[in-house]
Write a protein that binds this DNA or RNA. Structure first.
Lengths: 339, 339
DNA sequence: GCTCGCCATGACAGCCTTGTCATGGCTAAG
DNA sequence: CTTAGCCATGACAAGGCTGTCATGGCGAGC
């Protein structure tokens, strides 16, 4: 509460000009070691914290990173936030969260906020990573951004992702390895770039194993529990049903399990179910879900890092981007194929 | 990208001084209607947006609201964010999210951020609503805050809550109304004020119905799926088991359902399960969970409102606070008692 | 008709920090 | 010994806005 202490106080205390204090604070060169120490001592003694508003008004950094999302999965969203914050804290940055409603007027939501609040960068989560209006607005305002798991137009801006195709490929191989030959697949939300890649991974693995991908074994979903539920009703409705179902995310897999439960199918004896994401929900079910652990935390942290340290892209070269590792998490919802 | 347009541009465009533009922007009095219109027209024409950093540096508002949380439930967290943002957007405020790790040094996490970033107010979610170090730091820095669902020390600061005791009371009555007389209860995390109130509501309802509350029918949980799972194992372990279990939140209720599933109990025919919160998970299960819908969205929105419009407390009077309505959501996980 | 007081408005000084440019001391080269 | 050039530092303006106080116009009261 006591009168805010400013850079002037520190300057006076350490007997230098405010500019020198500023240099020390910003790790600029050209400060004698001796002076630097004296200033740092004063900062510590006075418990001084630079004022963000003043910094961002005067300088080029705002110490603010934005996270845009329009994701129905709370687990995904908080994971991203936690991952980004962890990195931001270390550098004194803060996180601004901005839910965007893609069904509304996106321009109206994004443009004002970008103009009002200066941010050093924005982290885009799917499906916003591929939203043309959002990308355009960001570029128009000159705000740096990093896309998490973009679906296409990969060279447009820096991104962080994982190999969704490969992960789906390996999950499919896991099922095939358990003896499954008739596998159902539920595609994810078409606006998410990852949906396509996961689908492709499934197709590739089946093909490579010499197995047929029957059209009636593939259903379109929307990444929601309900869509998984409905897809499963179709998949499991006939007398002839697959021995395993691979859903493109956990929420849909949970929908599949709900249908299986209702049909009194024994999991995994009569039906194996696999998901994707390893959301908290994957463990909140019985049997626990076999799924793919996305490095969400790490992806968000990496994105924040890129933004804080300035995403420099060299002319002509593709933007600096990162592909992180995933992990197959085998739990109890998948088992040996019956028969 | 085009050169940032400032208040000076608007002033020039509308032929008034920047101070008058400022007056219009801030809805200050003493501006002729005619002038006001002219300024507003210029603002619209130039698509002017005031710069937040400059505003907060010069004035007393920061246009930033913080949300502190340390809540294991992602659904709860995002609900709070969404509720708060919805209100903030209308007034041009932004949301800063700050996860706090209560197991770490809280002072070290809170103090620097409060000193660096000026916020107009902070929304505290359980269990932070009752964290003494957080409250003290906020008060020391003179930052206004609103507590969501605090457990005690109710007159210390403004809060927004719902009547947890009454809700638990009504849920218990719902079960009793279905013929259940032997009901198990799982207490929530002891650090959350609501846990105690929900427990009390259960006790009161049982007592009022002339039913005994057996000690071995009450288990301590931690609001996590796992703790619900473990509590259920104890509750359902013996030959003599309750016909219904009321868990203090949905995650624990889901844990109960997992145990029931594993034991091949038929829900709700052999066991009724009730939760609390109406998180997304409540619908992501089969049968869907009977629960209490917390007005999380509204509570967060109300809290943001109080912060933006200044929580004025009159000397002597208790702080202005709000109790919002809840709703009993009866789904398929509760049914007639067997026998 | 004159003064008082209120209303609408403007001039100007901050708010706190960073960026730019100037300064003076010192080193190394000519 | 002189001077170019680098290093450490400081003075000052700028950044966009709000708060305070001053100003001029105008209607009301005497």
């Amino acid at each position: 509460m006591s009168a805010k202490i400013t850079i002037h106080d520190v300057a006076r205390e350490s007997g230098v000009s405010i500019k020198t204090v500023s240099r020390v604070l910003n790790r600029e060169p050209n400060v004698k070691a001796d002076t630097r120490d004296r200033v740092q001592a004063a900062v510590a003694a006075l418990n001084y914290r630079p004022n963000i508003s003043a910094r961002s008004l005067a300088g080029s950094k705002a110490y603010l990173i934005g996270v845009f999302f329009d994701n129905p999965s709370p687990g995904y969203v908080t994971d991203v936030q936690l991952g980004a914050i962890a990195r931001c804290r270390q550098e004194g940055f803060h996180l601004i969260v901005e839910p965007i409603d893609s069904t509304g007027d996106v321009e109206d939501q994004v443009a004002p906020m970008l103009a009002t609040l200066r941010m050093d960068g924005v982290i885009l989560t799917p499906p916003l990573s591929d939203h043309p209006v959002v990308l355009a607005a960001l570029e128009r305002e000159g705000v740096a951004y990093v896309r998490i798991a973009p679906g296409g137009d990969i060279d447009r801006a820096p991104w962080v992702s994982m190999d969704d195709r490969l992960a789906a490929y390996e999950m499919t191989r896991h099922l095939i390895g358990l003896g499954h030959t008739d596998i159902g697949f539920i595609i994810g939300h078409p606006d998410h770039g990852a949906s396509h890649q996961r689908h492709q991974g499934f197709i590739d693995a089946m093909r490579d194993a010499g197995l047929a991908v029957r059209d009636d074994r593939v259903e379109q979903g929307w990444f929601s529990f309900r869509s998984g539920f409905e897809a499963a009703e179709k998949l499991l409705g006939g007398a002839d049903r697959p021995s395993a179902i691979f859903a493109s995310n956990d929420d849909m897999a949970l929908g599949v399990m709900a249908v299986a439960n209702r049909m009194r199918l024994d999991l995994p004896a009569q039906l194996s179910v696999a998901g994707f994401d390893d959301t908290p929900g994957a463990k909140i079910t019985w049997p626990q879900l076999t799924t793919v652990r996305q490095p969400i935390h790490a992806m968000a942290g990496t994105a924040a890092d890129m933004l804080m340290h300035g995403v420099e892209r060299e002319e002509g070269a593709p933007p600096p981007s990162r592909l992180l590792d995933f992990e197959l998490v085998v739990r109890e919802s998948t088992g040996q194929a019956p028969g």
